[in-house]
Design a protein around this nucleic acid. Structure first.
Lengths: 195, 195
DNA sequence: TTCTCGATGTGTACGATGCTTACATCACCG
DNA sequence: CGGTGATGTAAGCATCGTACACATCGAGAA
């Protein structure tokens, strides 16, 4: 929605238009993004984007960063100060839902080498980890919080990708929510081995 | 190793040669595979593969299936009848090591829609889940084994991808092993909330 | 031995897609 | 009204998947 605010000849604000066009394409096609397609969608020539982005990767970086911001916001909105396993399950559900709602964006955010430490993506990703760490250290102050935060993030991240890649059935959203909840609760309420 | 067993005129056993060539390329380039490159690497014309594989996807399916077989073997070899958290940590380390040793293959195995239920990949993936399920139900017979198996798989899968995608530092293998071990142990020895 | 035939690989071409750059052109600001 | 920056046009260059017609080799029939 709202892709149609382009009264200007010189296109007013092409930069923003390109970004939203790219987002729209990501959510529709699901496949891989191409600069040409983005330009086409925004109604400009294939070369126009180069006036606003150094290259394709620069555009992708911004998209990914926006995605991270959105993800973090969703997580924060889904639960405040999680304490019991069910709270963490809700966090997990939010994470996985985000991935399934916007699969291409999620892949763009993560499924990339992203070597640059300076990359906007790397920073944004670190913020997500920071958020999880904060949650965990509040709920389990006596544990190895860093390891636990890594584990928690990995758990939901793995759930997201396994669903995304068809290794776990993802057709029915309610079923997915249930599986995520069960998994998180199961591992959090597990009694240490009785041996 | 052992890419040099092609004494034949018409190339002897091209089918196998193509598969190993493809594996080699996957482990070298890391990038995406192309049928042409595989043929080039095997020293044949771009069209030759079509005598042995219906299309590119057929080749990829076989590669992925072989990868799953290898992964399962590594997992089975790393621990028999896991019981304590440290055993599961070893399993996780094996999983993540596999992913980091052969990143492109790992991506090929998982990072694909893989819609076909009949696909060799889907079957192989299901076998991995079966293996994990067997381990879990033996060690924690009183728990919700299915949910727990899903959680365990997701946990190590997430760890693998987060390292693979540079969201967690993966340069030093020992450090990675340590982080994986800590994470698995931390979440398995977690005392249910004391509230 | 010689001929024939099917399996296997070659050469080549087609059509598509993509990223990027060089240069022309147009719209607006001052 | 001139200039400046945003955009269009066109092209270069690379890559890929795949199809088709033809050549070649090995083996079994005659």
């Amino acid at each position: 929605m709202s892709t149609s605010v382009k009264p200007a000849y010189h296109h007013g604000d092409l930069r923003a238009a390109l970004l939203t066009a790219a987002m729209d394409l990501l959510e529709e096609d699901g496949g891989s993004l191409s600069l040409r397609a983005v330009a086409r969608r925004a109604g400009v020539s294939p070369a126009a984007p180069y006036r606003h982005f150094a290259d394709k990767e620069a555009l992708e970086s911004e998209l990914a960063a926006a995605g991270f911001a959105d993800l973090r916001q969703r997580l924060a909105a889904s639960v405040t100060a999680p304490a019991v396993p069910e709270d963490f399950a809700r966090l997990g559900v939010s994470y996985v839902r985000f991935a399934l709602d916007r699969p291409a964006l999620f892949r763009l955010m993560f499924g990339n080498p992203c070597a640059d430490t300076e990359d906007v993506r790397a920073i944004a990703a670190a913020e997500v980890l920071g958020f999880v760490l904060a949650c965990v250290s509040q709920a389990f102050p006596q544990a190895d919080t860093e390891a636990l935060a890594t584990a928690g993030w990995s758990l939901v991240h793995g759930l997201a990708f396994l669903h995304l890649d068809g290794k776990l059935p993802a057709a029915d959203p309610a079923e997915v929510d249930g599986r995520v909840t069960s998994a998180v609760v199961a591992i959090l309420t597990l009694q240490p081995t009785t041996h």
